[in-house]
Design a protein around this nucleic acid. Structure first.
Lengths: 377, 377
DNA sequence: GGCTTTTTATTCGAATGCGAAAAAATCCCA
DNA sequence: TGGGATTTTTTCGCATTCGAATAAAAAGCC
């Protein structure tokens, strides 16, 4: 047995991430992925195996040479909680140490809920998850709506919870649960969810389109989520729309491209009519429609996406939220319309795809953060 | 004398950068800036002084305690070349080891110049600089127009030099000059110039507005220049404009907001008329104008900047190029118009300022890159 | 089956970087 | 004038990390 040095916590965490994600499977590949020497990597892996975070699960014979000793995460070593919320509901997921989704909890919030009750409900959701998850809770990720200061761990502002101003979420939740807590804006959390659970796992540049009650985006550039100088990157919902409205004080993009607005436009229904009971079903019902309403909606989306693409030159736009019910046809329509309106896009590889993640993408993203932030004690 | 370990090149380079920029002035502050221990920092500094890259230039007494031994870069230790070019001219600057601009060279290129002659001319400019700069040439930064793959060191495409396709600039120039060569797009180079020589030296988030013969931007987020997945981030010139032109195939932003177009609009002169001999003078002449033309130009700029601001949530927009001749009044007009058109911007701290750097900002930026990339042998 | 080739993992001495403590340089105040 | 107080710099022992060599494990090849 080798001597057991006091290794660096964060490097241990990074090693676990590489193994969990499958980017590294053996000591040698892990050494390359972490950028440290094979000898040191061996020491780290020994430590992690001794602490029951990793195990060796067989051999992998290459075309020649000594076979790799496959490293895996020990599923039962503990679990991560991911919680996302808005003014209406809380979604929480439990993810085991191997990164597999194991449990989901949803909780509806009453109208006019206040910050304190939201926090209590978050804690209740985590407690509910704890009943069935095995091992200790290792860390908690939160996806909060509105403006979020991820570094400070503070929810700055959210319009739909009356007293949601400068809520020190990380501090409050962390002091109750006694585990590390990571906070991020919910759309940016979804971006992380795509990296771990969706199609973003091999992409380093993509954009999340998140039309729900409003319209916002999250951008990933070179593997990094863009925050903005005031934590407001991607808050395009307040773009004036149509854009050339000179007067000012006109409509905003929120109004034109939110999920309810999109349904109303596609269904040909005015603002006075009620929304369908289940908006996703309503959208699915109009997914095959066509005609000028369809074209107009696609043209609006196409313009927004085209502008965005030329600014940040991303690879892929991933559509999230209820509008995924409109399916691939909608995404193709947007792409085609955009290329027709802006010929420059034709060569630029513009691509819009619906997310394969479901309604709990935000909670999954929050859990992803928890995983990324964790490191052994 | 302490023993002299074989230190890491890149840490030596980083140390010199910190001293040169003034972010660190003594051994202790340097240790903090580099994130390494004071003891190790002492060894590094000793090495750099022994190699004549740094020197001690006196003491700095704080309010109490042992005074700091002030570290400075040795101006004569060598020099950096920064070269920027387009289809019309080459600008080159020589910067000494302390980061001071010492020499400038400009060379006009003939019409229909080809790639080979551009490369020859770049080498000629560097040779010219070498005549007066003292010490050895340490590295060369290049700012190239069009699409640029900075990592690969290749100029991908530029419309105004006929055979400018996949030009391996770094390889070609590097093999001639036998020093490291760094390449970047010229607008993104300007972003670096602002960091070293302009108002960006304490900003981590800003945007360069570069209206010249076209319109493009460069974005700095959290201290990093954004490249884009296909090296085309900020290429907004091909936005359709006015935006709501449904037909497609209309005008582009290039046409509306380029420097010549702006002059024509402000001067009330049609496309058939010639441009003034000196566009900067022409623009200075209309800087005090007002009326509907002025308002329309400002409104266009305001819209573009407003949209950009809400996407990337930057701190400051820095105006570059000939339009700086329009002065602060123009920038204020843009800001005011934008806030009037998009009320959301009022709280977001939108700010547009003219650059204090002159016409050679691109070359300065290229030199900045050279400085940032250099490390002792 | 033994030999070479290839790839992965481990051993072991060397050395780089760190932490704690000491030294140095100055100010403040009695 | 001399003893804290304070801050910067250096010394010194120690230990983590590295590199090179070695061992290990398998395939291919005659």
């Amino acid at each position: 047995m080798r001597k057991n040095p006091i290794v660096q916590r964060e490097t241990l965490g990074a090693a676990v991430l590489q193994i969990r994600s499958g980017r590294a499977t053996s000591r040698t590949t892990l050494a390359k992925a972490l950028g440290i020497s094979p000898s040191t990597t061996g020491l780290y892996v020994d430590h992690l195996i001794a602490e029951k975070y990793l195990n060796e699960s067989g051999l992998n014979q290459g075309p020649m040479g000594r076979p790799r000793r496959i490293l895996s995460t020990q599923a039962g070593a503990g679990w991560f909680a991911g919680v996302e919320f808005n003014a209406h509901r809380i979604q929480a997921v439990g993810v085991d140490f191997s990164g597999s989704l194991k449990e989901t909890v949803e909780l509806l919030l009453p109208a006019d809920v206040m910050a304190e009750q939201v926090i209590k409900s978050i804690l209740a959701c985590v407690a509910k998850l704890a009943e069935t998850m095995q091992g200790p809770l290792l860390s908690v990720g939160l996806g909060a709506p509105g403006l979020v200061d991820a570094q400070a761990g503070v929810g700055i502002y959210y319009a739909f919870i009356p007293d949601w101003k400068l809520v020190p979420l990380v501090e409050v939740i962390g002091s109750r649960l006694k585990v590390p807590v990571i906070l991020q804006n919910n759309l940016r959390a979804i971006a992380l969810a795509e990296r771990w659970f969706g199609i973003g796992h091999e992409l380093s540049d993509y954009v999340i389109l998140g039309p729900r009650s409003g319209f916002g985006i999250a951008m990933v550039q070179d593997g990094r989520v863009i925050e903005g100088a005031h934590h407001a990157a991607g808050e395009v919902g307040r773009w004036p729309w149509p854009l050339m409205n000179t007067a000012g004080g006109g409509q905003e993009l929120h109004h034109a491209l939110s999920a309810p607005a999109t349904w109303r436009r596609l269904a040909g229904v005015g603002e006075q009519n009620n929304l369908p009971e289940d908006l996703r079903e309503g959208l699915a019902a109009v997914a095959d429609s066509s005609g000028p309403e369809w074209d107009a909606v696609c043209a609006d989306y196409a313009r927004v996406i085209g502008l965005l693409h030329m600014i940040i030159d991303t690879g892929v736009f991933i559509l999230h939220g209820p509008l995924t019910m409109l399916g691939e046809r909608f995404c193709h329509s947007i792409t085609d319309t955009a290329c027709a309106l802006m010929p420059a896009l034709r060569d630029a590889g513009l691509k819009v795809v619906p997310s394969t993640l479901g309604d709990n993408a935000g909670a999954l993203g929050a859990a992803s953060q928890a995983m990324e932030a964790w490191a052994p004690a």
